[in-house]
Design a protein around this nucleic acid. Structure first.
Lengths: 346, 346
DNA sequence: ATCTTGATGGCAATCGTTTGCCAAAGTTTG
DNA sequence: CAAACTTTGGCAAACGATTGCCATCAAGAT
């Protein structure tokens, strides 16, 4: 009712009898005007319910107060925590969050970034499908932080799932599993490749045979294909690219009458929403997802402020831990599918 | 690399030898300039990789090309589909989506809306906690569309879960359940109240006794309290405010050794991510959530364009359907907790 | 008493785009 | 052929804030 025409800086100037520039300074550069006038101006601003027009501000100052967060698929539960983390931290710093769904396409991602580079002060790429060179090039134009993607020259926060993979492997080995298989995720996922590499290394360390099925696209529904492929191996324990896939695998195994963890064990990755109440509850590598979002924002914001100062481009690594639930158990004494195991213990 | 200083409309004007105003018109009002010059200008724009500065545009035209979507909690899976729906439709219309988490607080919601009213052309309120009068007042200032909230004068899209409640009730009755209880959700939820009302009406229609426990706050963890409270009633079938609560209830029942659906049946609401793979898979009222998001955007956008034309404020109602999974089954012949049932069949 | 200096506030340009208004064409009509 | 329109393009004023530069004034130094 009250706000017919929005209150501008000029209205405040008129009300207090100073120039618009003084109002601007009083509100933004505290030291630049005398305490007395500043207080008068602040009072008037409050009184008139003044809200700065960010468009106008952006036009002259060049900063928009908006940070874009790009996710490859808003409906992927992995991003829930991430989004919440960024949201928290951004709000605390007075920034708005522009959420963009790149639909898992690198081109789409690049186009969005180009189209919107003027709308935002910086961007957080939570699952970039862009090649390294494009990323590095983009980073030269817009302040960027990547999550779970490590590119030289671009600050990043990565969740150290690869290290966690060692833990998962160890866990399965300690349960007596000798043959372990990995359900490989999408080729375009950096995390997937990193996890696979880590796992291969772990297998080598323990001298275990190790297979891989896939790649499988993102999404729970492909768990069926993955489960079938996994059952075709001689493995008794499966590690899935992520929880979504793992849950899909669990569902399919149940359909096919394979008991978990009686016949086979399953380990997921990320500990997303649902991992704790699926059937059976999933043993998984718990990632500090929300924290990753917060850290990514801090990183970005620190780069924004001291843009001219030292480059301070950092890569933050966040540790994970293994959460053991009911989907893993001792290896079956006799493999249900094959009994061929004449090989010595090691 | 190429884009040192961003290309402006003036650059194009210079390149083609026309005035900036002509460029603006060529790009925005196709009919206003001759086809020949327009083509020349478009070519130049393409050539120079021109990206309009939305801030400047917003400043003079008053429209920002941004729509805010307010959710009460980004991590609530209910919003996943919604966000995806709005995202789709907004992108198609060339708008950007500004996602805002109101943290389930009406004050926070109002403040955000106030602070950001200049950043956006309109807002979609997916779970407003604001009182009716505030909402109506706000709608006078900013184009608004509500989801699952019906306020006079504010266009809305509501998912007709109440009608679906009838279906759920019927389903349980047909399975032989005579005593049904509702796990009441948060008081500040409009949907919750609407569902409760519908259920009461259904109970009356069927002449069944009907109890209610709660209210319970939002969130899965409160399912434990709800389950305990429900077990304290003589009901053999439970309907939960939403799936999140239902899943929590399921978890607790399992803990307490109550079999579902052997001992009691459970019905949820919304069919969120997870409802199909929890243990046991949840019978629930499937809501067209994603569609709701899309419709909300269309509604809002249509209001934006014809602001001066007929008011055409509408309320769209989306139907739901019952998805029967494994959490509901025939009523137990003999209640496990009580055997007192001397009453005649009806 | 004069000069320097620092604090304070105002003027005016600027950011990039849109849009009302006007002028110069070209086109139709009587 | 003149009058009356229609196109088409340009000028210049917004939009609301920021900021470099200058003017003023008071206090301190000489």
């Amino acid at each position: 009712m009250r706000a017919q025409r929005p209150v501008t800086i000029t209205d405040i100037a008129k009300a207090t009898g100073v120039a618009p520039s003084t109002v601007s300074r009083a509100l933004n550069k505290p030291g630049r005007v005398s305490a007395a006038t500043r207080e008068r101006i602040e009072a008037a601003a409050r009184e008139l319910d003044y809200v700065p027009n960010s468009q106008a501000r952006a036009l002259s100052s060049g900063r928009t107060g908006t940070i874009a967060v790009l996710v490859s698929d808003v409906t992927n539960p992995f991003y829930f925590g991430l989004i919440r983390g960024t949201q928290q931290q951004l709000k605390a710093a007075g920034y708005a969050q522009l959420l963009i769904d790149t639909e898992d396409s690198g081109e789409h991602e690049a186009e969005m970034l180009r189209k919107m580079r003027r709308w935002m002060d910086g961007a957080i790429l939570t699952a970039s499908r862009l090649p390294e060179r494009s990323l590095a090039g983009l980073a030269a134009e817009i302040p960027l932080v990547t999550v779970n993607r490590n590119v030289r020259g671009v600050p990043s926060v990565v969740i150290d799932t690869p290290a966690g993979m060692g833990l998962a492997f160890e866990h399965l080995v300690s349960l007596g599993h000798r043959d372990i298989a990995y359900a490989y995720g999408p080729e375009n996922s950096w995390s997937n490749r990193a996890r696979w590499q880590a796992l291969k290394a772990a297998a080598q360390r323990y001298g275990r045979t190790f297979e891989r099925v896939g790649p499988f696209p993102r999404g729970r529904m492909f768990g069926s294909a993955a489960a079938d492929a996994l059952l075709n191996t001689k493995a008794t324990a499966y590690i899935a690219f992520n929880d979504l896939l793992a849950i899909g695998i669990l569902t399919r195994l149940r359909e096919r009458g394979v008991r978990v963890p009686g016949d086979v064990s399953v380990v997921g990755c990320d500990d997303i929403f649902g991992a704790d109440f699926c059937n059976p509850p999933l043993t998984t590598l718990t990632a500090p997802i929300e924290q990753a979002g917060r850290v990514a924002v801090s990183l970005l914001l620190s780069h924004l402020d001291v843009s001219t100062a030292e480059p301070q481009r950092r890569a933050v690594v966040l540790p994970t831990h293994l959460t053991i639930r009911d989907s893993t158990g001792p290896a079956p004494q006799l493999t249900i599918r094959e009994s061929t195991d004449p090989a010595p213990q090691r």
